[in-house]
Amino acid sequence: AVPERLTPNVPGTHSYTISPNAEWAFHTFTSFEVPPAFDVVHLPDHKVMRKTVDNAAVAERAKPLSGGPAEFVKVAAGNGLVVDAWLMKPPDFDPAKKYALIVYVYSEPAGQTTADRWPSMFIRALTSAGYLVASFDNQGTPAPRGREWRKIVYGNVGQLSSQQQAAALQSLEKTHPYIDPKRVGVWGWSGGGTETLDLMFRYPDVYSVGVSVASVPDQRLYDTIYQERYLGLPQDSPKAYEQSSAINFASGLRGDLLVMHGSGDDNVHFQGFELLVNKLLSLGKQFDMRVYPGRTHSISEGKGTTQDVYTNILGYFEDHLPPGASNAPAH
C-alpha cells in the first residue's frame, strides 16, 4: 500500500498526545523559524478545534537577533559520510567579510541538534552578539537514518563523534568562505559538554575556545543504564572506556577552556568534574572554571543562576573569541 500522510504537509516538527479513542489530540508544531504552537485537533481530518498557545509574537521579536533564516545544509564528515547541519548568521551579515563561528554541540545518542524545530533563544543571543553559529549531527544521534547510523557508536563514543564533528566543520569552512577558521569556538551542555572537551582536547588546531557545561569527562562515572548500553561493561571493555573518555586526552588542550558544573548535580556527578580539574592541574594546563554550589544538572536553582550561566558563556566567548566581521584577505 502507498503510505498516506496523516500529518499536515508543513515542514517542521509535529508531535501529538492522542486521546484513548483516537478521535482527538493535543498537537504541537514548531520549526526553526516558528516557536512551538499548541492546538487541539480532531482526527483523522486534523481539523483544528482550538488553539491553546500561539507564540507567533515571539518569532517576530526574535527576527532582528539574526541575519535571516537558518541555512540547512549537508556536509561531508569523512569516509564518504554526509551529515546534516545548520548555520545561522548575525544581523547585518556581509558575505564578503570573515566571521568568528561558534559550534553548538550535543553529539550523543540521546538527542540531535539539527532537527527543524525552534532552537534555544541563547543561539540567537550568540548571533545577535555578532557570531556565526552552526551545529552538526554525527553518527549515533537519533536521526532517522537507519540501524548502522545508530549502532556504529557502540564501543566508540567520544572518539568517532569528535572525528566526524571536526571533519564536518572543516567541510563547512571550505564551502562557506566567510567563516574564519582561526576563530572557532564550541560549547555544549551535558553530553555536549563532554563533546566540547573531546573537541578541545583531540582537535586543538580546529577549535580555539570551548565552554563545557555539566560534562562527563570519565565515562566510567556515568550511570550504568546509559553508558553500558553504548560501551559495554567496564570490566569487559576497559579500552573502549579509556578511548571514549575525554579526560584521557586532556594533554592536548591548547585553547581557552571554561568548565562549569553544579556541585549538587544528581545526573552527572560532581566527582567527574573534580577529576577533570585535577587532571588539568597535574598537566600544567591553564583553564577557567565556575562552580555552582548545590545546583543540579540544569544549574537553574536559586535567584540569578540561569542568568549568570548564560552571561558567563557569552562573556567567555566575547573575551577569548571576539565577535564581529573582519575584512577577508584579498586574493
Rank of each mutant, 00 (worst) to 15 (best):
F72A: 11
V73P: 05
V73K: 06
K74H: 13
K74G: 07
V75P: 07
A77V: 02
A77D: 05
G78I: 02
G80C: 14
V82C: 01
V83F: 08
V83G: 04
V83H: 03
A85P: 08
A85K: 02
W86D: 01
W86K: 06
W86A: 02
L87D: 02
L87A: 12
L87F: 11
M88G: 08
K89Q: 09
P90Y: 09
P90F: 07
P91C: 07
D92Y: 12
F93R: 12
F93K: 11
D94K: 11
D94V: 06
P95S: 11
A96S: 15
K98N: 13
K98L: 04
A100R: 01
A100D: 03
L101T: 03
V103I: 07
V103R: 01
V103F: 01
Y104C: 02
Y104M: 02
V105I: 10
Y106V: 00
Y106R: 11
S107N: 09
S107I: 02
S107K: 04
P109A: 08
P109W: 00
P109L: 05
A110E: 14
A110I: 11
G111Q: 07
Q112F: 03
Q112D: 08
Q112M: 10
T113H: 01
T113S: 14
T114S: 08
A115W: 13
A115I: 12
D116M: 13
R117W: 03
W118Y: 11
P119A: 04
P119G: 04
S120A: 15
S120V: 11
